[in-house]
Simulated scan of single mutants.
Amino acid sequence: MRLGRVAARVYPLLVVELLLVATVAPGLALLVLLDRSVVVAAGALPVGPALSAALYALHRQPADPADLRPAAAFWRGYRLNALAALRIWAPLVAVLAVVAVSLLHRDAAGVPVWWSGLLVLIAAVATLVAVTALVIASLFVFRPADVLRLAAHFLAARPAVALGTAAVLLAALAVTVLLSEAVLLLLASAFAAALLAVSRPMIAGITERFLEPPGVAVVERP
């Protein structure tokens, strides 16, 4: 029985990991073949919809091990969430690309040290808000502006969500810097599961506020 519970937890992670790698492969090919900042930014775009689909699939796994269908859930989440995920992910990629180019060419552009620190802070806050918004958009149906407002609200109102999400992002950054992007990709489904875990207070709050009362228009992703 214990082995079955372990398998029920590991199997979805493995399947989602394989599908994550498959869906971000076109962007990875661009990153490997070409070394230009614009191409690097374009290559990062598929990560948003893939991560959103992974969040949806892992959140939707049933308790019954005999009813596990992570691949079907992943592709359903990808189809439902791709556009909403890109609306969040594309601006984040653009902001990070501008910040990265500015920092890489700081001396040539004459950017002062204090401005570099401000750029890093902007990138960190933008990433925190965007990733939180991506979790919301992956699981619930809201207007894009409302997704961002909810993300900002819960980051401010639920410090545990903000600290947990920041810890997951810092761990991902550490893996990338100390090891490589390839290692981060191989652990992507585990990081998606960690994002879901630290976002549970936010998910519960949204469910209680918008889904439980009768007659509400906002719904959970089917």
Rank of each mutant, 00 (worst) to 15 (best):
L33Y: 14
D107C: 00
R106C: 00
P12F: 01
L14C: 10
L28H: 08
L51V: 14
V93E: 06
L13V: 04
A85M: 12
A63F: 01
A197V: 06
L186E: 11
P112N: 10
V10K: 00
A97E: 12
V161A: 04
S37N: 07
S37W: 07
S138F: 01
P214A: 12
V168W: 12
W89F: 08
A188N: 00
A82K: 02
E17V: 00
A182D: 05
A156W: 13
F74N: 03
A204M: 05
P65A: 02
W115I: 11
V15I: 15
S52F: 04
A124E: 07
V183M: 07
L170N: 10
W115P: 00
S52H: 09
V93Q: 04
A71L: 05
L155F: 13
R158F: 11
V98C: 03
A182R: 07
A8V: 01
P26R: 14
Y78D: 08
S189E: 00
G77N: 12
L150R: 13
V111E: 07
V131P: 02
A57E: 05
A126C: 13
V129P: 10
R149W: 14
L55I: 13
V21T: 08
W115D: 01
A22R: 02
A193Q: 09
A50I: 02
V168F: 10
R87P: 05
Y11H: 14
L96C: 01
L184D: 02
D64C: 06
L179M: 06
A156P: 04
A166K: 08
V39F: 08
A171K: 05
L184A: 07
P46A: 09
L173D: 04
G4F: 03
L34S: 06
I136V: 15
R158I: 12
R106V: 07
L51H: 06
R36G: 14
A124Q: 03
L155G: 05
L80E: 15
G4N: 07
V216C: 00
I203K: 07
F210D: 10
V120E: 11
L13S: 00
A108Q: 09
V111R: 01
P214E: 14
P49L: 09
I206W: 03
L68V: 04
S138E: 06
L163S: 11
R143E: 15
V120P: 03
A182W: 08
L30I: 06
A100I: 01
L68Q: 13
A188S: 12
H59N: 12
A145S: 13
V141M: 05
A22L: 15
V161D: 09
Y56L: 04
R60C: 09
A166D: 12
L18F: 14
L195T: 02
L28S: 14
A172Y: 03
V113H: 08
A188F: 07
L184R: 04
S138M: 04
S52Q: 10
G27N: 09
L121V: 15
G77A: 08
A44D: 07
A84P: 12
R79Q: 13
L121K: 03
V168H: 05
A123E: 09
L45V: 15
D107M: 03
G205I: 02
V24S: 03
L34Y: 15
A50V: 01
A151P: 03
R76K: 13
F154K: 04
G77Y: 06
E17P: 00
A123L: 11
L58C: 02
N81E: 14
A204E: 15
M1V: 05
S189I: 00
G110H: 06
V16D: 00
